[in-house]
């Protein structure tokens, strides 16, 4: 995609595409080979760093006489992982946290986007509500977790609510911002074509806002895991957050380590799911080649 664009832009505006296409074909294999070489060394370097870190984790703590309950080694964690899988129903806790993250993210995202678009459509409501939105945005949402437990009890509702709340604001703010910065000339063009307010919203404003919406969703994806974790830390008896408090109570540091690693895995999965969706939806944006 990027290659075709450079080919066309490089050619004079009136030049036949055949000539420019040919030039592009000649240049491409070389550039491809160079980038492949670059990425091969890069991958090797990335793997090497990983191996060094794992080796340091495995051998440094025993060498420095750091006890296992402070820093368990990599192999300790792997052994504990196997034990947790068999004895502590790890898959169940992992699945519980994963599902709560996804549901909280989707709900928070939908609510945030819907609110952003609604406020974007009404200047008056946006002005009236924006001081409160700012206030709520600054408030530490995770601090609401104990409150939600007091209200709804030790079930999955509090952790879902915290997640929805933390995901909601960055998406709302991003969408609202994009609605305020839609190109007025595009809107005027649509008006000259006698398009209704709703059609303009659907055909101009929503597509214009998609890059901002995805920026918000990416932030939301990483925050969702934090929301669920805090909800599980504060109360309940399921999920990786619960395993952290459980492991802490037993001075099982390896269990805490494993839970943190798995939480990170969930965060990465969510983030890459959003990034993949973004790449599909926003395929028309020019990407910088580095």
């Amino acid at each position: 995609m990027a290659d075709t664009s450079t080919q066309i832009q490089a050619g004079a505006p009136e030049a036949s595409s055949g000539a420019t296409g040919k030039g592009g074909k000649m240049a491409n294999p070389m550039r491809g080979a160079l980038s492949a070489m670059g990425s091969a060394t890069e991958i090797a370097a990335i793997l090497a760093v990983g191996v060094v870190v794992l080796a340091a984790w495995e051998f440094l703590p025993p060498a420095l006489d750091v006890p296992r309950y402070i820093i368990p080694t990599f192999s300790d964690c792997m052994a504990e992982f196997g034990r947790m899988w068999q004895r502590d129903n790890l898959l169940y806790h992992f699945g519980s946290t994963l599902i709560a993250s996804v549901i909280g993210f989707v709900l928070g995202g939908l609510l945030g986007a819907a609110s952003g678009y609604l406020l974007g459509l009404s200047k008056l409501w946006e002005r009236v509500l924006s001081p409160y939105i700012l206030g709520l945005q600054i408030a530490p949402k995770v601090a609401f977790a104990p409150l939600f437990i007091m209200w709804f009890g030790y079930n999955s509702i509090p952790k879902l609510l915290v997640t929805v709340l933390v995901v909601f604001f960055p998406i709302l703010v991003n969408v609202l911002q994009s609605m305020k910065t839609v190109d007025r000339d595009l809107v005027n063009l649509a008006r000259v074509y006698s398009m209704s307010r709703l059609t303009i919203f659907r055909k101009i404003e929503v597509p214009s806002s998609l890059p901002n919406l995805f920026a918000g969703l990416r932030i939301g994806a990483t925050l969702a895991v934090i929301g669920v974790t805090v909800g599980e830390l504060v109360g309940g008896n399921t999920g990786l957050g619960f395993l952290i408090t459980y492991g802490e109570g037993q001075a099982n540091t390896a269990m805490v380590f494993n839970a943190i690693i798995l939480l990170t895995v969930i965060g990465i999965l969510l983030y890459f799911a959003v990034a993949a969706a973004e790449k599909r939806v926003l395929h028309y944006l020019v990407r910088e080649e580095h």
Binding site: D183, D185, L186, V192, Y193, S194, P207
Partner: peptide, 27 residues
């Protein structure tokens, strides 16, 4: 606004998320 008036600015005002033919169909 009326449908028999067309306008064009310094900016091309093409919608980046539409292909060229879809942009032409816009009006």
């Amino acid at each position: 606004t009326r449908p028999e008036v067309g306008f064009m600015l310094q900016k091309d005002l093409l919608l980046p998320w539409r292909s060229i033919v879809k942009n032409v169909e816009f009006g």
